[in-house]
Design a protein around this nucleic acid. Sequence first.
DNA 1: AATGAATGAGAGTTCATTCAT
DNA 2: GATGAATGAACTCTCATTCAT
Lengths: 205, 205, 205, 205
Amino acid sequence: MPRPRFHTLPRERQQTILHAALDEFSAHGFAGASLNRIIAEAGISKGSIYYYFDSKEDLYAHLLREQVEQLIVRVGPFSVPAATEPDAYWSTIENHCLRLVRAYDASPQLANLLRDWMSGTGAPAIENAQRDAELSALPWMTRALAAGQSIGAIRTDIPDALLLAIGMAIGRVIDSWVIAEAPDPREHAAAVHTIVDILRRAIQP
Amino acid sequence: MPRPRFHTLPRERQQTILHAALDEFSAHGFAGASLNRIIAEAGISKGSIYYYFDSKEDLYAHLLREQVEQLIVRVGPFSVPAATEPDAYWSTIENHCLRLVRAYDASPQLANLLRDWMSGTGAPAIENAQRDAELSALPWMTRALAAGQSIGAIRTDIPDALLLAIGMAIGRVIDSWVIAEAPDPREHAAAVHTIVDILRRAIQP
Amino acid sequence: MPRPRFHTLPRERQQTILHAALDEFSAHGFAGASLNRIIAEAGISKGSIYYYFDSKEDLYAHLLREQVEQLIVRVGPFSVPAATEPDAYWSTIENHCLRLVRAYDASPQLANLLRDWMSGTGAPAIENAQRDAELSALPWMTRALAAGQSIGAIRTDIPDALLLAIGMAIGRVIDSWVIAEAPDPREHAAAVHTIVDILRRAIQP
Amino acid sequence: MPRPRFHTLPRERQQTILHAALDEFSAHGFAGASLNRIIAEAGISKGSIYYYFDSKEDLYAHLLREQVEQLIVRVGPFSVPAATEPDAYWSTIENHCLRLVRAYDASPQLANLLRDWMSGTGAPAIENAQRDAELSALPWMTRALAAGQSIGAIRTDIPDALLLAIGMAIGRVIDSWVIAEAPDPREHAAAVHTIVDILRRAIQP
DNA sequence: AATGAATGAGAGTTCATTCAT
DNA sequence: GATGAATGAACTCTCATTCAT
């Protein structure tokens, strides 16, 4: 966790630092990243980064949390559609996925960061950070899942954890495949539609 | 590629080295791995590892290739069942997935290694190694996919690349979820059955 | 070029480091020199030398430049004597050569360094450093040459480059032979006189 | 000194090895040269080089001696011209210098090797080799010098050692300047003539 | 006579971290 | 509050050399 001092910085300064860190961590992964390069790009002193963060790991953990939060904000809150029937539900899901794709498309670094994070090969000390970030993303998915089940859009005969895992896996397919195979943003909608339809077949009752 | 000398070593010695490398790379990823630790664990000298391999990257690449190959061998060759109808096909797939799970279960390091491999955040220098390993794994999946389509077990209206991506994503769910949630090997079969059924719903015609 | 930090060090510390580097480079040449030995003799840490200089090459280049500059300072600025006739000119030259001899005599390492520098068998990477140092020494010689020609003390019918080459060659004879054959400083003057007279015969009109 | 075994090799094999060594030593100097690269280029085994030579230094020393000998052979024996007057003498000298230039021109590596050798920054252990090589070149020059003096072509009022030093210095000018500034072999003769004339002025009575 | 496997020492370089100012 | 000088450990990699075969 960053020391409280960090949050008292002008927001601009914070962003400069986090942006440099995002660039570096997403490009080289946690282990391959260099604090030296981060501070060089951010234009701050060696001492400063240690004045704001306990360690490299701490910086990474904070960056991760912050990026996941931002992503969730960008994707928007999940709201059960007024129409309480499956078609409308899946339409909402599709909409969220499309926003997700656009967020990833706008910041490939974020996608890299998350992929590195999920590889799980980091120092044991950052696992806590990883779990934290994961937990902050889960509630949103959990709520979406419960809503889908309550209106009969999603099957209820298999464990939630499995449904979530599948949801996240397909989510990763969305960001990797859609962006790789349909780089033109105008094709995003169609590609997402296809994949969400697949997801729907997979986990509808 | 390892120098030919490596292959002339007693098989035991080769295994000792590769085992040490697998431990290290799977625990820390490519960037975080330390050659010093590898040679210490393998009980060989600093010069030796460079006598067998050109570089850290070379060692990693060879390890990756070798592990993927072994995995494929362990999972077994894909053969279209005599009965050429979907149920038999999916049964075969399920069978392969179960073997996959058991292979992963037997060597969690392998799972870590492959996850690091797929995170893709490594130095640009190891991308060749990654691509190579990927290519050695793809044919197997491609053949399985084509067979499924030819007997009407898999839909043909969406691109192969997408089907493969989904197949691999579900595959990852199998190794992460099954092992996490059903650590008792006796439950593996049931869990795999559930997930393969989900996969079937997702991509059958 | 050394990082600016180096120049903010106490002059004494700078000298300690450069002295150690001079010892090492002059004794073993660029390729044979060991940074480990340099830092050991200078009594600084391994990290420090890289905090001050970009690389071994950078340290060598800076040392070379600095030594050449110091040498030029010690030899003194070249000034055309008031009396604009050859005898006075050659007398001035002789005077400079004598100072050169004394500088070399005071620091044999400098002579070694310069000899290694001129051998030019270094890695292609240090050629820039060598060229730089050369350029910083040339203007002095060029000015001296032009002055000699303008008052008729030096022939003008052969290319300047050749005259300079001969001048430098004789210069090297001065430092190697005078020091080797006339180690007693009191004999320096006579020896230099002899050699400058030879040089005069060689390149006067 | 190479072990006697080396000389029992087929001359061709000897040449292959020495040629590879010449390439490497002339390109990187003694300290920077790599035995590994030498044996790789020569296509011999690691053990062989140590079967023929005691050490890296031993190989270097032998190469040096051999090259100097070859050079002297190529330049040809010094013979006092029948006509015993200065013009004929200097003409002979000029002729030898021209042959020297051509030898250097034919093998720039030789020039590099000798320059590295003369830099004197090698390990103390190779100094003996250096001295040996120097001694094997000296007799030739000494004889030439004595001949010149006996017929009044060279002054006798300064020490022989100094005359020799100047001769060698001018010799170096010949190989460095002539080759650098007059790369066209057809210009060699004129350039050499100019420089030998300068030498003549410098050391004739 | 000849090989090449094997090695430890050491190379240059980068690292995350500390701490006096 | 913020800096940047300083460091030692660790890094990947190359070296000349030895020796069993």
